[in-house]
């Protein structure tokens, strides 16, 4: 990377992931740069390699060949004990919310700070602020069961954002939500992106992608087949 250029927050350099046994690799020679502050949709059918790509960013996986850089670190060379530090710079949101059912909304969000060793003072300050950001300031004492799907996803986003990560990874965040609720979640992600957080979102949701008009990277059988700056879900005819 030459001096003076913007260093991408995420860079795939001919990254290939092969699982043991016969069959095609899950990702093949993928090269994609994501700059700081970008909003990128990762689209493709099931088995196209979207989840594998996200796992590389989270360093749940390592590329078999090629390189992947996240927040300036080459994940292949990153020592195992440094992985938690990398993950603190990444917020993650899933289709199934993954909230702890026995903890209140506030406790669920605070959990992300407690387990990364943040002080009680920091937690008391950051948690209400983040709940305010996602529009749940008045629901802190509720349990996840008492909330709608959209609200639960907002809690998950709050948990992902409370440590102020550089990157937000969302794996089908609207997959379990109705279209109207999905719009609300996308507006929230757009607002988070507006504050400078890079967002990488894997999705099947045509409506969401078409409406947002953001960058779209399409994977098919582990290969990048399309990378458009302001794309829609399918090919434009």
């Amino acid at each position: 990377m030459a001096a003076g250029t913007v260093v991408p927050v995420i860079r795939f350099e001919k990254a290939t992931v092969s699982y043991p046994g016969p069959g095609k690799p899950a990702l093949s020679q993928v090269s994609v740069d994501v700059d700081k502050g970008e909003f990128v949709f990762l689209v493709g059918t099931s088995g196209s390699g979207k989840s594998t790509a996200l796992k590389l960013v989270l360093r749940e996986l390592r590329p078999t060949t090629g390189r992947v850089y996240v927040a300036g670190k080459e994940i292949n060379r990153l020592a195992t004990w440094k992985v938690p530090r990398l993950r603190r710079q990444i917020g993650t949101v899933f289709q199934d919310f993954r909230l702890l059912q026995t903890k209140t909304v506030t406790e669920n969000v605070a959990f992300a700070m407690q387990v990364t060793g943040r002080s009680t003072r920091d937690i008391r300050k950051a948690v209400p602020e983040t709940l305010e950001l996602v529009g749940l300031a008045d629901k802190g004492a509720r349990l996840p069961d008492e909330l709608s799907g959209g609200e639960q996803q907002r809690v998950a986003i709050a948990r992902a954002m409370v440590n102020q990560p550089m990157i937000l990874i969302a794996d089908e965040p609207t997959g379990n939500l109705d279209p109207a609720t999905s719009v609300g979640i996308m507006k929230l992600l757009d607002r988070i992106n507006g504050t400078g957080t890079t967002v990488l979102m894997a999705t099947h949701d045509h409506g969401v992608v078409d409406q947002m008009r953001k960058r779209v990277v399409e994977l098919d059988h582990g290969v990048v087949v399309r990378d458009e700056a302001t794309g829609v879900y399918g090919y434009q005819h």
């Binding site: 004990w81 992985v83 603190r88 917020g91 993954r98 992300a112 387990v115 990364t116 060793g117 440590n163």
Partner: peptide, 17 residues
Amino acid sequence: RKEIEIMRLVGASRVFI
């Protein structure tokens, strides 16, 4: 397991887990 999965994802250190 759910709790541990979340801890791993948000970057809790191994010692902490």
